[in-house]
Simulated assay, not measured.
Amino acid sequence: MLNVFNGLQEFLATGGNVLFVIMIATFAMWTFILERFAYYLFAHKPTKARLKAEWDARTDKTSWRAQAIRDEMISQIKERTDSNVGIIKTLVALAPLLGLLGTVTGMIEVFDVMALSGSSNARLMAGGVFKATIPTMAGMMAALSGLYFSTVLPRWSARETQRFADELSHY
């Protein structure tokens, strides 16, 4: 376990401070993705069942008020299935931008080395170039790891909301 921690610490040191920010953003993104799976596995069916039982217990299902209550129930399901999806999409879009920020900071280090040494010595610049490429790679990998879920989760939400709306009879 100590070797894993030391390896992670070395990796973060090679990529600079931006790599730490990318790691936190990726951790947050995956926390929200896993929260969505936990919702669908544990909370979605009981919520649907409770609201459907509430609707089925109503005697009046045709009045304007009843339809407003039905719409509100559908809205509750939509709100719960859409929860945190926007945050996931934002973090997926943010990851490559953070990688680009790491590239810029690494290249600034390269230019600092060039300015201090007065030459373009490849050995001196290698550390900055390495520091520039690692965050770019990490940002792209973070975005790619969440890209699938940022497209699938909104579809699941729309599908589950529509299914629930179909389950509630109009009359």
Rank of each mutant, 00 (worst) to 15 (best):
S75V: 02
N84E: 06
F149K: 11
F5E: 13
M125D: 14
T14R: 07
R50H: 08
Q67I: 05
L41K: 07
F164R: 05
E160W: 09
S75F: 10
A126D: 10
Q67G: 06
I69S: 03
Q76F: 02
T31Q: 06
N3S: 09
E72N: 13
A143V: 03
A53R: 15
T161M: 02
F27Y: 11
I88H: 03
F11T: 10
K48R: 15
A13S: 14
F27I: 14
K78H: 03
L2W: 07
R50V: 01
G146I: 03
V129F: 01
A143Q: 06
A138G: 01
E79L: 10
I88K: 05
F27K: 06
G146L: 00
D82P: 00
A95M: 07
D82R: 03
K89H: 07
K52L: 15
A142F: 12
N17C: 04
N17F: 05
R163L: 12
R159M: 11
K131C: 11
N17Y: 06
S117Q: 12
L100F: 13
Y148Q: 08
G118S: 09
G99N: 04
L147W: 09
S119Q: 13
I22E: 05
R155G: 05
L124A: 14
A143E: 04
P96G: 01
L97W: 05
M1N: 11
A93F: 06
D82N: 08
G99E: 14
S119R: 12
I134Q: 09
V113C: 04
L101N: 06
A115T: 13
T14I: 08
R159F: 10
E72Q: 10
G118F: 09
L124H: 00
L19H: 06
R50P: 02
N6M: 11
A25H: 04
M114Q: 15
I33N: 01
I74D: 02
W30Y: 07
K89I: 10
R155Y: 09
A142Y: 12
W55T: 02
W64K: 14
V92Y: 04
E109I: 08
R155F: 04
P135G: 05
H44A: 09
W64T: 14
V18K: 02
R65V: 12
L144T: 04
K131F: 08
R163H: 12
Y148H: 11
R163S: 12
P135C: 07
P46L: 08
L124D: 00
A158W: 06
A25G: 07
E167Q: 13
T47S: 08
R163G: 13
P135S: 01
V152G: 03
S120Q: 08
A68K: 13
G106Q: 10
F130D: 03
K78V: 00
I77C: 04
Q9F: 01
S63K: 10
E54H: 13
L94F: 15
T14V: 07
G99L: 06
F27V: 15
L94S: 15
K89Q: 15
L147G: 07
